[in-house]
């Protein structure tokens, strides 16, 4: 066992883990943060995307030990004071989801995109979502939601 310490959604946590514990297992099973989903579990679908030190990463392809000392933000950490994050609000408003399974990863990934590029074109959004798969194929509204969130966040 090893002890990992990290800040998750603003709260400091320290837990003992088996070295082979994936970050997504740690979040879901030890911290009960089940908003981060396990989709393919093979690094392809992006349902498990979280922010680690501000950058989007696949929590199924990272050990909890590798996040030791890092700041992690999951979908549960986006809303502030009971108000949805503008990206969450845009997904709701523009129905950027069908079954909703891919949504946490889509939203976190989109938040990272806007950090780097506050005014992305439709093409840039679609390129960025390369690592996020929606098996309902609901991409049109997802892209629309991100475009509106970008607009809201710039104004």
């Amino acid at each position: 066992m090893l002890t990992v310490t990290m800040t998750v959604n603003g709260q400091k946590v320290a837990k003992d883990v088996d070295p082979r514990t994936l970050l997504v297992q740690f979040l879901r099973e030890q911290l009960n943060l089940t908003g981060t989903h396990v989709g393919c579990d093979t690094s392809q679908c992006g349902a498990c995307v979280v922010l680690v030190d501000g950058k989007s990463m696949k929590a199924c392809t990272m050990l909890a030990a590798q996040a030791d000392g890092c700041e992690v933000t999951t979908i549960e950490g986006l809303a502030k004071n009971g108000e949805l994050h503008p990206m969450q609000a845009a997904f709701k408003e523009h129905h950027g989801l069908q079954c909703g399974f891919c949504t946490p990863g889509m939203i976190i990934s989109a938040v990272d995109l806007l950090q780097q590029n506050p005014d992305p074109s439709e093409h840039e959004i679609r390129e960025w979502l390369e690592g996020n798969i929606c098996r309902c194929t609901g991409y049109h509204n997802i892209v629309k939601a991100i475009q509106h969130a970008a607009q809201d966040m710039r104004s």
Binding site: M57, K58, S109, D112, W128, E130, G131, N132
Partner: peptide, 9 residues
Amino acid sequence: IGDPQVRNR
């Protein structure tokens, strides 16, 4: 290479 999340690691 890969996708943005893969490129971040």
